[in-house]
Design a protein around this nucleic acid. Structure first.
Lengths: 153, 153
DNA sequence: AATTAATTTGCATAATTATGCATAAACATG
DNA sequence: CATGTTTATGCATAATTATGCAAATTAATT
């Protein structure tokens, strides 16, 4: 029953994205969300995943919602910037990078230091970074470069 | 069965202190801790209290532990968010939202949570939020959606 | 390649948390 | 002060989450 490590990373990665994007109220909902993204799993596994990822369930106006915690697995995160990144998206003019809460600044600084990958500048908030390209034509290449640099897919 | 408000405040107060001092793993343990401090209560009541106080349960090396959340009691309510927004403007590529001083972060978080209204990401400063659309074609629609969601014109 | 060790997963279920309902105390109103 | 309303609480239980265990697969070792 053991799964490949890559699959686990993949599931964790998707998990993080779902949690940071949607409002997830319970783990059965999460099973369905993952299914929609083509990942099969069970409530039991997700319970363990959430624990490993340091995900918390916070009370909101709508009810209890899962969130990525800033403090959660702080120790694990410090070492690799890659682990701090949740997702990278773009539109016609900009690149937007989602990170764990409070991590945007650190990642932004890291990106700024990378010279010659086509970045004009970055702005980091709490958990979001805007990357401004030297030219909108370079957006694709920049994303590729970041992924290569960080060794993520 | 109603209790005096003072008692409730008192219990909440003690609750917060216990949570920030000891390692609390579950609510029955919490019932006992409160009892030791002379406060009688039940698991059900504490479940409600924890929700009201915005307490989260974080996975740690020892297991799940209750913690006071950083965001504390400030639950994002629609009506409150609406009041914090001063203006919404756009240009060809971005949407800029002005808020009352120091409120941008909160509003930005709220907007991030709204799924499927076409927002790629947001960055909040002190009193300004930049909203990046999934596509510049969606800018108008996003503004409409925000206004509808918040019930403002 | 064969064998062994290590790890992940699902199932079943235990443990824990959340909540509808009824009730009673506090509060409001006249 | 009497009466009506609101709200917090406990009980019982539903809903949800965590976990022991066995099975199955991968990874390691020979």
């Amino acid at each position: 029953m053991k799964k490949k490590v890559e699959d686990i990373h993949k599931r964790h990665s998707v998990l993080k994205e779902i949690i940071s994007t949607d409002e997830i109220f319970n783990q059965t909902q999460l099973v369905k969300s993952l299914k929609q993204k083509g990942i099969k799993s069970t409530q039991a596994t997700l319970s363990r995943d959430l624990s490993e990822l340091g995900v918390v369930r916070v009370p909101t106006a709508n009810g209890l919602v899962y969130k990525l915690s800033a403090t959660g697995d702080e120790i694990t995160l410090k070492y690799r910037v890659a682990e701090e990144i949740i997702s990278i998206h773009k539109n016609e003019t900009l690149i937007v990078i989602k990170t764990y809460p409070g991590r945007a600044q650190g990642v932004a600084v890291f990106l700024d230091r990378q010279s010659d990958i086509g970045i004009l500048g970055t702005i980091g908030g709490d958990d979001t970074i805007i990357v401004i390209p030297q030219s909108i034509k370079k957006i694709k290449k920049i994303i590729e470069q970041i992924k290569i640099t960080l060794g993520i897919n």
